[in-house]
Design a binder for these strands. Structure first.
Lengths: 230, 230
DNA sequence: CGTCGGTTTGATCTAGTTCAACCGCCGTGG
DNA sequence: CCACGGCGGTTGAACTAGATCAAACCGACG
């Protein structure tokens, strides 16, 4: 696909031996659990997932969403233990890697190593923007930003079939991402609906006006060129 | 120092040629600016700094703090442009690297490449916890968490001279980190002072009871073993 | 046909904001 | 020498964004 960088032949060969198999996850199923010590490393091949953390009393915070091409479980592979969980939002297919061969990747494939670091830096940038959102944006700005952000990411990986896009999340997910209560989230999303920026479906969000959302959020969009895929 | 991993001789040699010079920054001076395209890559050798983003209207969000051993500007070096700024909190000394030789590091020094990725993953973990804080913790929990977190990090790099530690921040920094107003931040910090968990100094925060802070925050602390230093 | 998860709506309450002072300290300029 | 202004911190009063409580709706599904 055009948005991913081209591989060298030996890189392709290594990746195919690095791959151990594929995993199919159902919506709502846990892909990785917080505290898991022997966590696996994955690449999401299709579908949606999300990373989250929880407090003892059940408060949940969604940290970020995973779309096709995203690496899942890198923290666990590099540092040792997972400090967050990952759950599938839609039916998802994952490429499973042999975690213990990551050092081999670093030793023999500098291009791929750089790609891993690139992906980690990209995640960091997304988290930075998210932090700005939670700390300093209003509920309406936050909601508009979140939907515009997911919309752009979905477009970037070609997940938009027809004209419009359905993001497979419930309002509870939105609430737990924005740090708001479910009631207030509902009222905030209604404002976006009233402005004809989105339409809410059964358990999905349709983007009607991406530019309007970005304006509402005061956000100028992601600038991403070609990206690596591992 | 004990907390950093040992280098191989050839790694040490490369790092010394990778190093271009040292930079001394005054408190309040900008180390890297958002939007800078030819951003440099640094390692903080001594002192404190912080990363932040701003909205058009001046709202500021502090994303994380930088302590000795932290890599600064990796996002810019790997992806291309900086999307956040970095400012010194105290007098700081930085090791300046030649950004364009980063690919050489990846090509010839898999151990160091892995270290860079390790540091990026660690930053990601800190951001995750921060996001949880902003989204789901109360003002008092957030403040306690922040102070306990900075305390632990300072101890981990041996920045604590005597018994107690002075974190060189103003209440405005705390407010911009926690996503609160300056007034409410002041009242929240006063509660922590009343509980004898901290003492506020002129433009610094002294930790009196690290365990008490962690309990107040409902946070069990960072678990970090030996770490790389580049 | 009941129940359950997701959504919607109104009423009430509160954590945190905004506004407005004021204090102490320090560096600056007359 | 003193007046000043600015920065960091402190405090009280009024206000509001968002939380909590409560109830109802709706479609899917066993």
């Amino acid at each position: 696909m055009a948005q991913f960088r081209a591989f060298a032949p030996e890189e392709l060969k290594f990746v195919s031996t690095f791959k151990r198999g594929e995993l199919v996850a159902e919506p709502g199923s846990m892909i990785l659990a917080e505290g898991a010590h022997s966590a696996q490393l994955f690449t999401l091949l299709s579908g949606w997932a999300f990373r989250y953390k929880m407090l003892e009393d059940g408060r949940r915070q969604i940290l970020n969403y995973c779309l096709p091409g995203d690496l899942i479980g890198l923290q666990g592979s590099v540092i040792g233990a997972m400090e967050h969980s990952v759950e599938a939002l839609s039916p998802a297919v994952l490429c499973v890697f042999q975690r213990d061969r990551l050092s081999e990747l670093f030793k023999n494939h500098p291009g791929l190593s750089f790609d891993v670091t690139w992906l980690a830096s990209r995640e960091e940038r997304m988290l930075d923007e998210n932090l700005l959102s939670l700390g300093r944006r209003t509920a309406l700005e936050r909601a508009a930003y979140l939907v515009a952000f997911l919309h752009q990411r979905a477009i970037a990986v070609g997940s938009v079939e027809g004209k419009s896009l359905l993001i497979p999340i419930t309002q509870q997910h939105v609430a737990d991402t924005l740090g708001l209560s479910i009631v207030h989230t509902n009222k905030t999303l209604k404002k976006l609906s009233d402005k004809k920026l989105i339409r809410w479906h059964d358990r999905a969000c349709e983007v009607l006006d991406a530019l309007g959302l970005m304006e509402e959020a005061g956000w100028s969009g992601l600038l991403e060129g070609t990206r690596p895929l591992i």
